[in-house]
Design a protein around this nucleic acid. Sequence first.
RNA 1: GCCCUUGUGGUGAAAUGGAUAUCACGAUUGCCUUCGAAGCAAUUAUUCCCCGUUCGAAUCGGGGCAGGGGCACCA
Length: 597
Amino acid sequence: MDSSKQKIEYNQILQFSSSSLNINTMLQTKIAEQLKRIIKAKSVEIEVFAPENPKHGHYSTNAALKLAKVLKKNPFEIGEKIKKLLETKKFFERIEVVPPGFINFWISEEILETELKTIIKSEDDYGQSENLKGKKVMLEFTDPNPFKEFHIGHLYTNIVGESLARILEANGARVKRANYQGDVGMHAAKAIWGIKKKMASEKMNLTELAKRTLDYRIKFMGVGYALGDKGFTENEAIKLEIVDLNKKIFALDKDIKEIYQKGRKWSLDYFEKIYKRLGTKFDFYYFEREAGEVGFKIVKDGLKRGLFEESDGAIIFPGEKYGLHRRVFINSQGLPTYEAKELGLAPTKYKDFKYDLSLIITANEIIDYFKVLIMALKQIYPKLGARTRHIPHGMVRFASGKMSSRTGNVVKGEDLLEEVKKGVLKIIEKGERKISAKERGDVAEAVALAAIKYAFLKTSIGSDMVFDFKRALSLEGDSGPYIQYTYARLKSVLRKASGWPKKIDFMLLDTEPEKAVVRELIYFPDAVSRAAERLETNIITEYLYKLAGALNVFYETTPILKADRPLRENRLNLIRAATIVLKNSLRLLGIKAPERM
RNA sequence: GCCCUUGUGGUGAAAUGGAUAUCACGAUUGCCUUCGAAGCAAUUAUUCCCCGUUCGAAUCGGGGCAGGGGCACCA
């Protein structure tokens, strides 16, 4: 799939308007205004960006280069012309035109100072915008299946989904979080078969099992599932039994009703425990059973309208008519498949929340199914089809190969969390910080979550993740704990300074490390809107890493508390602004910023 | 066979068509009586191949080579 195309489509749906008043958009507007004077023709696509190299200014634009092409003139001439028109002393310190035709801008100290003051005044709200004001987004993510494990793949979707939700919210969108869970289907049948088997061999009954801890029950069910799955593939007779169980589950047959309902509930309780730990909360829960019923009717209707066809006793969508492949929506047993269920889910969601955009985050292995599905949806509900987007994320895999619950080659979400937490506790105990035993557990939890979340969020969503324990456990370098450490260290300085400076003044900040920090700070609103525009979390992690880097250099090279009066105050204020931005960025990733660690 | 997708240092990743391709892990080495060493600084090497579009290509197009996923009753 062409991902860039998808991004454009997404923007068109939401009509992403950069109406916020951050410096970048102000610049773009200013330049665009001037361009209109030079050229009466229709719009030229120009870019204003923050250059890698500080020598190229706070901002840079390729406007002259782009325009040169249209006007067939020398980009330098055009650049100089734009420069002249923009040189209103108030906003820019300096503008230069350099080969091959870039125009570089240095923002005036006055504007920079105003921005820093805005950070301090806005505090938690800094970075919020109204780019997506009034837009409603339904965001589906996580989608674990009751009766099966919550593995690191689910952890990944959950972390990505929650972060995207926060990023969209920061841009002013109203976001509803949805979780769609497979409570019917072969996996449930396999699990129930296995659980029954295991109960029989251990002379355990349901009432007794119910008395055990939740963790025990979950583990019991997990072993049961593995047992059922093994039987299903290896033994024809067992396979038939399980297929029969599957039908009973759909019918809620009295044979399995109790064990099914209890098992389902236990799974859901367990998932809820994990969500709480991760800091996610869902607005809507959907289940395959109900979606399947709705989907079933839709497909039957569609069959009458000629949108679906009968084939070998199944009902299929003829995808080949649309350049895709055909897929079964209702199987020859008369049961809705995943596709029919998902089809039923769309109008169900819309009934609950009249969304402008419906995003569904899943692993990329079902990318082709979604193409067929969205095409079918477009035929039946054109409006909903046009508003639905699939965001495929990469697969989590091991160096040894694909992760599979069938072979038992899975890492459970909680196990990963516990492993990382152990490592963090070791480091905390080794250090000499005065952290109470009580606080220690909370900090270890926050740091462990930061390590995992950051590791997942910093890779681009589409590409696969090779999962490596050692890497995930790393607390140094480009990692969540590194950012948290930067924050805690600065907070410590602020505590020691005791009390805020009365005056907020930044005019005396002119060393290179100080300027580098200021430069990074003012980019924050741009990062937030760009992350939403492109639906990419790594824009935020990348931003954070650069900011933290600049802050650490500043910290190492520049005395703060020991500096003389006016400088000391200014530097304290700079740190204050920095802690606000660090905290706000981390919040977008769903990461906490402990004051001590 | 058809469709989709990926190819960037030893390994894993980053880079809205922009300036000197960025980082982490690994290796080697300096900096704690000095605001928190989970830090800072230094050394090492790279866009799979060919052609094209462009002022400018890791990025776009064509061809090749090599991985991965999918190709109807699992999700």
